[in-house]
């Protein structure tokens, strides 16, 4: 077992998710199945191999620094679940 139920709870917390208790055992089992399979990577010697985060040869993408119209205040609020005056409304942030 690479990860226990307790580990999965911790990862869920970091991910801002809750795994229902009824699914926990199966979820942990599937999680372990995938991580166990990842052991095959240990067979490969990657000493000194550069990682590939992106395949492109470009590192920076610049454009002319000219102001352009952006999203309006009204548009930004269009899909908000709750709005108060001109802003996004959320429940209490600090206890």
């Amino acid at each position: 077992m690479k990860v226990t139920v307790k580990d999965v709870e911790h990862i869920a917390g970091l991910s801002r998710l809750t795994i229902p208790e009824s699914e926990m055992e199966k979820f942990t089992e599937q999680f372990n199945q995938i991580l166990n399979y990842a052991d095959i990577l240990e067979k490969i010697d990657t000493e000194g191999i550069e990682p590939t985060p992106y395949v492109l040869p470009i590192s920076n993408a610049f454009r002319e620094d000219v102001p352009q119209p952006g999203v309006t205040h009204e548009e930004a609020l269009e899909n908000a679940p709750a709005v108060y005056n001109d802003g996004f409304k959320v429940p209490r942030v600090i206890e």
Partner: peptide, 11 residues
Amino acid sequence: KKAMQVRTLIR
């Protein structure tokens, strides 16, 4: 990191 290195080998 290991996966990104293997990605280099796949390329």
